[in-house]
Design a protein around this nucleic acid. Structure first.
Lengths: 196, 196
DNA sequence: CCCGTAGTTGACCAGTCGGTCAAGCGCCCC
DNA sequence: GGGGCGCTTGACCGACTGGTCAACTACGGG
């Protein structure tokens, strides 16, 4: 579906994606019908298929958009960090802040990870992010800042802490405060036994 | 649906749950139809509704079963642990081993967490597990084994590491070796900066 | 003012879904 | 061997699904 879109068309496309994001996040992808989306926007059903090949393609577009957004934020956060471990910390903070600010995107990521039709697309983005983080971990090991270990595995462990704690914030179990992020960073850097 | 079941009935019920677990894990809950389940077992559709009120009720039953199974394993693992931090370590190991051995259940947990219709049921179980873990963390703090901090938050961080690394094993990114579990334990106890 | 193309409409389609039910089967106990 | 209950059958239902399409409108450039 490569269509030449006017400004009006771009706007409509954005509307569809924004509204669908909301509905998918709230009701789930499968239970949300195409009709529900078009009716919610007060437009005919054909509009949907003017902009997207299928409901599946729509979700893929939303996910790609969200990933791009997140990556930009991460890049910006790392810009002015001096040491490798400082980069790691800033990466964690930026990711958590973004995830807390975008609960809908976060939920969609979570769902997409459970469905093979979408998880493939996520993998690439996640792989890049992990590779980046792993590089910083490796650099920190080389610089003697942290103990040796498999950098990829450790980078994934960071991701696990990030994901789970953000999930709790969205569930309302935790306040979306800096304390959560501080604890996450502290846990990742020092673990349970490390000094504070 | 409280039915008096004969041995044959119990067996049929177990068959339905086992087969559905497989299909739900592979294809997803929504895309798997009730007809697909009954046809896969070579029985009429009415059989399904003899044992379960709805497709939703079936998944709930499966999830409850899996949770019970997991909790039993955890309890057993903690039985002969002396110190609080040893309990924490054993808890992590037992959970990871169980999750690696039961990829279908694990996938179902992951999906259920994304759907409000099911996540409520999981919460209770998770809350109990976290409360247990948090109690051990608190005990470890009191014993001076680890630095002070919010025990519930820290327990959730453990859970996050566990979940994400197990996920990677199921995706084939990591080998299901003890090394993964060792790294997870090491990371949780020492973080990145701690000595090994 | 008109024409081409971007955008829109909504009835329509074939198929699927979760769930129901009247009827029948088969095992077990009396 | 017969009655009863646990279990099974599969046609059937209404609702709804993702997706199509011929006809139509609106708007910008010439």
């Amino acid at each position: 579906m490569d269509r030449r879109l006017t400004q009006r068309g771009e706007e409509r496309r954005r509307q569809l994606m924004a509204f669908a994001t909301q509905r998918f996040a709230e009701n789930g992808f499968h239970p949300t019908s195409v009709a529900e989306i078009t009716e919610g926007l007060g437009v005919g059903k054909g509009v949907f298929y003017w902009y997207f090949d299928s409901k599946e393609a729509l979700l893929r577009a939303i996910l790609a958009d969200a990933q791009l957004n997140l990556r930009r934020r991460q890049r910006a956060a790392l810009a002015d960090a001096a040491t490798p471990s400082e980069r790691i910390e800033r990466g964690i903070r930026a990711s958590m802040q973004w995830s807390i600010e975008h609960p809908d995107y976060f939920r969609l990521f979570q769902f997409a990870a459970t469905d093979e039709r979408f998880s493939g697309g996520l993998r690439k983005g996640e792989a890049v992010a992990v590779k980046d983080a792993a590089a910083h971990v490796q650099a920190a090991i080389d610089a003697g800042e942290i103990a040796p270990g498999d950098p990829v595995l450790l980078a994934h462990a960071l991701l696990g802490v990030h994901t789970h704690l953000v999930h709790l914030v969205h569930r309302g179990v935790l306040e979306p405060s800096d304390e959560v992020i501080d604890t996450a960073v502290g846990f990742c850097l020092h673990g349970l036994l490390g000094r504070r």
